[in-house]
């Protein structure tokens, strides 16, 4: 609750502080798993449009949806799942059509060198290992549970982390033997984890939709940013980070 209130206040302060703000700023609320790739897209977009300043607000998709519902100013919403953006759409908060701009797959993340010898989803049943998932309700948690269900595995997680970053930290530190994360998280070297592939038959494809918002303070900027994400430049940056581009 307080996080939402604080973010809303902060966003309000930011927009109030910028003189003539609306045309120069694009407020982008993006899912946590897009942190790195959107930072790069922001740089590229600002290089192409020097007059525009992109402000990234990164959090879990559900948190972002709560912020937007509560009236926090935003021009663009990029979610890690369809559910949260659909809810907003049903509330009438979405302006343009919803476009899937990227896809992601799941992968098992293990500490460097895979000390516990994790080989597949079946290991998530083992009680002698310490394994973690994202919490139910969090996109990466829901996807992971779908994949486990497809594999016929009833997981015995030792922790349900509130977001994928928290899960990665504990795996990288070696405190967890395995966790289910996005392929892009394993690709990013900075996360310091190794990957164990999940067979395509059990894998789940996460879809990342993007849309402009009805209460957007800067509709032109919003449209330009979304267009850039869908452009060849945007797509190549996404691909570099391990995302699938439809």
């Amino acid at each position: 609750m307080s996080g939402r209130v604080a973010s809303a206040l902060l966003a309000g302060v930011l927009s109030a502080c910028s003189p003539g703000g609306a045309s120069a700023e694009v407020l982008v609320s993006a899912a946590a798993s897009l942190t790195d790739v959107f930072a790069e897209i922001e740089d590229a977009f600002e290089t192409a449009n020097p007059a525009v300043d992109v402000i990234l607000n990164v959090a879990g998709s559900a948190t972002l949806r709560e912020q937007i519902t509560a009236g926090a100013p935003a021009d663009v919403f990029a979610s890690a799942d369809l559910r949260n953006i659909t809810v907003l759409s049903e509330d009438g908060a979405i302006k343009s059509g919803i476009t899937v701009f990227a896809t992601n797959q799941l992968e098992i993340a293990v500490p460097p060198g895979n000390p516990a010898g994790v080989s597949g989803l079946a290991d998530f049943e083992r009680t002698d290992l310490l394994v973690g998932l994202c919490a139910p309700g969090v996109p990466c948690g829901d996807f992971a549970r779908s994949a486990l269900q497809l594999a016929g595995v009833t997981p015995a997680p030792d922790t349900n982390e509130p977001n994928v970053r928290a899960l990665l930290t504990k795996i990288a530190a070696g405190e967890l033997d395995a966790g289910i994360v996005y392929t892009t998280d394993v690709v990013a070297a900075a996360n310091g984890v190794d990957g164990v592939m999940i067979p395509a038959s059990h894998n789940v494809t996460a879809q990342y939709p993007v849309a402009t918002l009805i209460d957007s303070p800067n509709p032109e900027g919003a449209a330009a940013f979304v267009a850039f994400v869908l452009s060849p430049s945007g797509r190549s940056i996404l691909a570099e980070h391990g995302f699938g581009v439809p």
Binding site: G132, A135, P157, D158, T159, N160, E161, P162, A166
Partner: peptide, 13 residues
């Protein structure tokens, strides 16, 4: 707590 102990219903939640 969430950083050190994790989050599991009945054990650490």
């Amino acid at each position: 707590t969430i950083t050190f102990a994790g989050n599991l219903q009945g054990r650490t939640q």
